[in-house]
Structures are given as structure tokens and as C-alpha cells.
Computed example of a mutant assay.
Amino acid sequence: MSAYSTLRSLAFMSVITCGLITAGWNGARNLGWSHDQDRGDVIWVNTDHR
């Protein structure tokens, strides 16, 4: 394997890895429990005007 081929393979693997990490992060952020406002003793007051 040449050096160019090795660098190209590493670059491709890093792009794939970053894509998988980003997809996992976005999936974890969109889970329902991460947006739950009932977290124990904290009282949330809705101050939105209707």
C-alpha cells in the first residue's frame, strides 16, 4: 500500500466515524427523556402568554 492510499483510507474512515458520531449525538438529543421537564423537585412555571 502506498502512502497516498493509506492517507486516503484514513481520511475516509475519519469521515465515516464523524458521521456516525454526529448521527448518534443528534439521535440522543431528540429522545423524549432529554426534553422531560419533570425532573424531581424542580418546579417549572410556564410564563408564555396565550
Rank of each mutant, 00 (worst) to 15 (best):
T22L: 08
Y4C: 08
D38Q: 10
W33Q: 02
S14F: 06
R8E: 06
L31D: 14
S14V: 07
W44R: 02
T22N: 10
S5K: 13
D48F: 08
T22K: 06
A3Y: 03
W44S: 09
C18I: 09
R39D: 00
S9C: 11
L20Y: 08
R8I: 05
I43R: 03
L7N: 05
S14R: 03
N46E: 05
V15W: 05
W25S: 04
M1E: 06
V15T: 12
V45Y: 01
S34W: 14
T17S: 11
N30H: 12
T22P: 04
H35K: 11
V15F: 08
W33T: 04
D48Q: 14
H35C: 05
R39L: 08
W25A: 06
S5T: 12
S5V: 10
D36Q: 02
V45D: 06
I16Q: 03
C18T: 12
D36S: 11
S14H: 03
F12P: 00
R50F: 00
V15R: 09
H35M: 00
W25R: 05
M13G: 01
T47C: 15
W25Y: 15
N46M: 05
W33L: 10
M1P: 00
W33V: 02
A28S: 15
D36P: 04
V15N: 03
G19P: 00
N26M: 11
L7R: 01
L7Y: 07
S34G: 12
L10H: 07
S14A: 11
L31N: 05
A3K: 12
I16W: 02
R29W: 14
G24P: 05
H49D: 10
M1I: 01
S9R: 07
L20R: 07
L31I: 07
T6K: 09
T47K: 06
A23Q: 01
T6N: 10
W44L: 06
N30P: 01
T22Q: 10
S2K: 00
L10R: 06
H35L: 06
C18F: 03
G40S: 00
G32V: 12
H35W: 11
D38K: 01
W25H: 10
L10G: 01
L7A: 14
T6C: 09
S5E: 09
H35Q: 13
A28P: 00
A11E: 09
I21E: 07
R29D: 04
C18Y: 05
M13L: 15
D48G: 11
L7G: 03
T6Q: 13
G19M: 01
R29C: 10
H35A: 10
D41Q: 13
S5N: 13
W33I: 09
V45L: 12
D41P: 04
S9Y: 01
D38N: 15
G32F: 08
S9E: 08
L20K: 14
D38F: 01
V42M: 13
W33G: 00
L7C: 09
W25N: 03
R50L: 14
V15M: 07
A23N: 02
S34H: 11
R8M: 04
A3F: 02
G27Q: 10
D41G: 12
V15K: 06
N46L: 02
D38C: 04
T47V: 15
N30Y: 10
D41T: 11
G32C: 13
S2C: 15
D41N: 14
